[in-house]
Design a protein around this nucleic acid. Sequence first.
DNA 1: CCCTTGACTTAGA
DNA 2: GTCTAAGCCAAGG
Length: 128
Amino acid sequence: MSGIARMGFFEEVRKVVRRIPRGRVASYGEVARAAGYPRSARIVARALRDSEKHGLPWQRVVGGGGRIVLPGEAGLHQRLLLQLEGVGFAGLRVRMDVHEHKFAPVRRRTASLENRSHRPKELGGRVL
DNA sequence: CCCTTGACTTAGA
DNA sequence: GTCTAAGCCAAGG
């Protein structure tokens, strides 16, 4: 693999996917975001294509809104695996209100703006 | 090197 | 609810 700059991508994706607990799911977009590549949902899918080799819980990654986007028989397999670990469906979608996994907020370089604890009060006292 | 494909997402009609 | 369009980016032909 000559992808030097992007080498960390798959690693990050694998790490993120492994963090999804049993009985929960996350969307491709969420995984991409949590991995630090917010626009690369599709690439997450490509990474998962080889997930079997890495022993990832690939079934816990679904499309936006809980939709299973993996086509064909594989999609049915995914649904079965999820149901076996207790994930409930409403029609063709995972009940995201129950089973969506929330990742810890990605800590970006936050200037003092986000850190309210030592924000200067001179800014007017009440800030929105 | 260009073109197409895809386990995506968001926005709009 | 459905459908289309654009953006996205790696892999394969």
